[in-house]
Amino acid sequence: MTVMSLPFSLAFLYYSWQRDYFLAIAFLLLSSLMDVLDGALARATGRTSRAGSFLDSSIDRINDVIIAAALPSIGAPWFLAFLWATGALITSTLRAAAEMDGIKGEGVGIMERGDRIVAVLIVFVIRIVESNMSLPTPKYSVALVAGIDALIWITVVQRALFYGSVKALWMGSVESSIVLVSILLGKAYDVYGFLGATGILGYVYLIAKWLSLGFRYPLSVYDSVLDSLSLFSLVWLQGAPFWLFYVIRMSMYYLSLRGTLFSSIRGKGPGVR
């Protein structure tokens, strides 16, 4: 059911760009419902596993970026969508990095994933009101996006300081530097720069999540191949293909956790969503 949230998120993105905001909101609610039901069902049936937790959290990161990619459809510049998505990814990476040190990372920060989903729903409702009022510019909804961006990045700082984890602080600093460099190079203002930067951060998140489960990195020679191809993509479409390699690595790690690929791996670690 985790995977079922993804088609609904994509439908949300499609109808957002079609300016059919009512349908967009409906599909975002369905996507969120699938995610909630998945966790509840897994706990109720006792079928929680590291494989399921890894897949769930990995798809959540894809959904985070899809949601941010819908923001320009309401008139927000790509720069604000860029800050939204990168801040969300760094927030999740900090949690995964803290878990490497055995630190529980849930419930830290003023703008976690659930809060961001509620916030984007409010943004779209305000955009609908603005459309019905025939306002010349969507200034209120865009201003709200900017304010939420600030809260997301405050959450990044909160987590970096709260965890007291050297790994979290180091990974947060590296990813924040990637964001800053992307902005300084002018890569944060169009869709390719958005996909490239978020793809890199998402890719780093996968590695952090894998390590938080207690496994080694690299898992195999295929990791090195994927890393090399991913870095090469920086000169092609500004790194946007990172998301292709994200899906490949996510699938590879998921199958490994299921024991159907590289079954010789061993490790210990909590399967935290």
Results as ranks from 00 to 15, higher is better:
240 A>I: 08
168 A>D: 13
17 W>P: 00
125 V>D: 11
102 G>V: 09
188 A>P: 07
197 A>S: 15
215 F>N: 00
125 V>P: 05
147 G>E: 09
165 S>D: 06
27 F>Y: 13
267 G>T: 05
264 S>R: 14
129 V>R: 06
201 L>P: 01
67 I>W: 05
163 Y>C: 02
53 S>G: 15
27 F>V: 01
43 R>F: 08
41 L>T: 11
68 A>P: 05
162 F>D: 15
99 E>T: 01
268 K>M: 10
106 E>D: 08
90 I>F: 06
98 A>W: 07
71 L>C: 04
196 G>D: 05
48 T>K: 05
3 V>G: 03
220 S>A: 08
231 L>N: 11
75 G>Q: 10
256 S>Q: 10
177 S>M: 08
127 R>I: 01
137 T>N: 12
81 A>K: 06
107 G>Y: 01
100 M>P: 00
27 F>A: 00
81 A>T: 14
45 T>W: 09
191 V>L: 14
99 E>G: 00
12 F>P: 01
91 T>S: 14
129 V>D: 07
248 I>E: 12
234 L>S: 00
131 S>F: 11
195 L>Q: 07
96 A>E: 12
120 V>E: 10
170 W>F: 15
256 S>H: 08
272 V>S: 10
49 S>Y: 10
115 D>N: 11
196 G>Q: 05
46 G>W: 00
30 L>E: 10
216 R>E: 15
240 A>P: 06
158 Q>L: 02
258 R>L: 15
155 T>A: 08
36 V>Q: 10
202 G>L: 09
91 T>P: 06
163 Y>A: 01
170 W>P: 00
83 L>F: 11
4 M>V: 09
18 Q>E: 14
54 F>M: 08
233 S>Q: 12
195 L>P: 02
99 E>M: 03
58 S>C: 10
178 I>Y: 14
121 L>P: 04
112 E>C: 06
46 G>C: 02
261 L>C: 04
148 I>K: 03
84 W>V: 05
108 V>H: 08
105 G>T: 03
83 L>V: 10
60 D>S: 06
5 S>H: 09
170 W>T: 11
107 G>P: 02
65 V>H: 01
66 I>V: 15
155 T>H: 05
111 M>N: 07
110 I>G: 15
76 A>F: 04
46 G>I: 02
246 Y>L: 03
14 Y>C: 07
255 L>K: 07
131 S>Q: 13
54 F>S: 03
192 Y>L: 15
183 I>A: 04
152 I>K: 02
239 G>N: 03
59 I>R: 00
57 S>V: 06
273 R>F: 14
29 L>R: 00
15 Y>S: 03
16 S>Q: 09
12 F>Y: 15
13 L>H: 03
96 A>T: 04
48 T>E: 15
89 L>D: 13
34 M>R: 02
228 S>N: 08
